[in-house]
Simulated scan of single mutants.
Amino acid sequence: MRHPAPALTVIGGGLAGLTAAITAAESGAHVTLQEAHHTLGGRARTSEAPYLTHEGPHALYNGGPHWTWLEQRGLIGPLAPIPALEGARLRFHRGGVLRRTPPAGLLRLLRHRPERVPVDEDFTTWATRVAGPDAARAAAHYTAVALFHHDPGSLSARFVQERLRRTAKVPPEAHYPVGGWSQVVDRMASRAWNLGVRMETLSRIDALPTDTPVVVATSLDAARRLIGDSSLTWQSGRTTLIDLAVRSRRGDAFAVSGIDFPAWLERFTAQDKTLAPHVESLIQGQVPIAPDESKADGSARAETLLDLALPGWRERTTWRRDALAQGRTGALDRPGTTWRDRPAIDRGDGVYLAGDMVAAPGVLSEVSFTSAIEATTLALRRPVTTRGLDLNRA
């Protein structure tokens, strides 16, 4: 006797939602994906021309399993290499000036494998003991590129050390899809479509469906409201995002890492000239800010770096946008916690979570991919029954 093909509903059309939909459809499931916005991609959406920007710097790291998953399906597409000469213009803001090399103590810390670093101790305490206070501070601030947090040293030592090692690797793990992340999103959407996924945009869901298992691939805040589960909380970053277009000038820095304070600025057109009009440079960056600080505080610190990295940038500016990102930059693990302590993927009764704030390993977008694959695997193992959901559970 043949069993009917399983069905699955995916709520959210970002990287996690598209990954879940593709994974399920490849297993033969009937998949419906519902997205509240008119376009797919979530925070991986790329803005429209002439300046192709994202919600903060976006890079695709090749050190995680999501890279293999994308590559096997031909979804990565062309990548923009970092030119050797541009790469030589990575600068470190230290002692009020831009320097060519990071503090030596930071390099000493890179020798320590994350799995040997304590979970229950904050990074500053551990790194100070290993390499001294200056190195600890420098390393913590350098990881702002992957943490979007104003005080990375207060987070779990193992959590920060993993990101320090991943972001400082040579050759770099970070790669950039030509034309921005939307190119990857479009390829993922095409694959989902070809696999028979029914994709509905401008479809805002106020209650979970009860006739299929469901993967909720939204922000954690949206999932908490939709599921009615007040326990769905976890700390994320708060940062000022800077998007800036300037007329190009020879000698502009490629990227600046904040050592005096957490920050990261990067000239994305150094590797991908399609992101801005000819003879213009597109700079994107982020400056994490404390809970009592404003977006303007982050912008002011970004301008300190711009004055050093791009002389005369004010007179050369052709376009600028500053924004505040809060709770949209991935999970942060405090001392004593790991990714296993975040909100569980399996919420019971046929409901599964996916996204960058849930209990799955990885760095930045890798968490979205790994959680989506796990959520889909669990959902398709569930017997084909009609769910009875208690949407009022606490």
Rank of each mutant, 00 (worst) to 15 (best):
M1Y: 14
L8I: 06
V10R: 10
I11G: 02
I11A: 07
G17Q: 00
T19G: 15
A20Y: 11
E26S: 08
T32K: 10
R43Y: 06
R45S: 15
S47W: 15
S47I: 10
T53D: 12
H54W: 14
G63F: 13
H66G: 10
W69T: 07
E71R: 14
E71T: 08
Q72W: 11
Q72E: 15
G74F: 11
P81V: 03
R89G: 04
L90E: 15
F92L: 07
G95Y: 02
V97S: 14
L98H: 08
R99D: 02
R100E: 05
T101N: 11
L110N: 00
R113L: 11
V117R: 10
D120S: 12
E121G: 09
A127M: 00
R129D: 14
G132E: 06
P133F: 09
R137I: 06
A138L: 08
A138G: 04
R158D: 02
Q161I: 06
Q161K: 11
R163E: 00
L164V: 03
R165T: 12
T167Q: 03
T167R: 07
P172L: 03
H175R: 02
H175E: 12
P177K: 01
V178T: 07
W181E: 12
W181C: 06
Q183L: 02
V184C: 15
V185E: 03
R187H: 05
M188W: 01
A189I: 06
W193R: 14
M199I: 12
E200T: 06
T201R: 09
L202G: 11
S203N: 01
S219H: 08
A223S: 13
R224E: 11
L226C: 07
D229Q: 12
D229G: 05
S231K: 03
S231A: 05
T240N: 07
L244Y: 09
R250H: 09
G251L: 13
F254N: 12
A255D: 04
S257P: 01
G258P: 05
D260Y: 10
F261S: 01
F261C: 01
A263P: 09
W264M: 01
T269S: 08
Q271C: 09
K273I: 10
A276H: 01
P277C: 09
P277I: 13
G285P: 02
V287W: 00
I289S: 00
I289R: 03
I289Y: 02
I289E: 01
P291R: 04
A300Q: 04
R301P: 04
R301F: 13
L306P: 00
P311L: 08
W313D: 00
R314M: 02
T317R: 15
T318K: 13
R321W: 09
T329V: 11
R334C: 15
W339G: 13
D341N: 10
P343Y: 09
V351F: 04
A360M: 13
L364M: 05
E366I: 10
S368H: 02
T370P: 01
A372M: 07
I373W: 13
T376K: 04
A379D: 14
P383F: 06
T385Q: 12
T385E: 08
T386Y: 09
R387S: 05
N392S: 15
N392P: 12
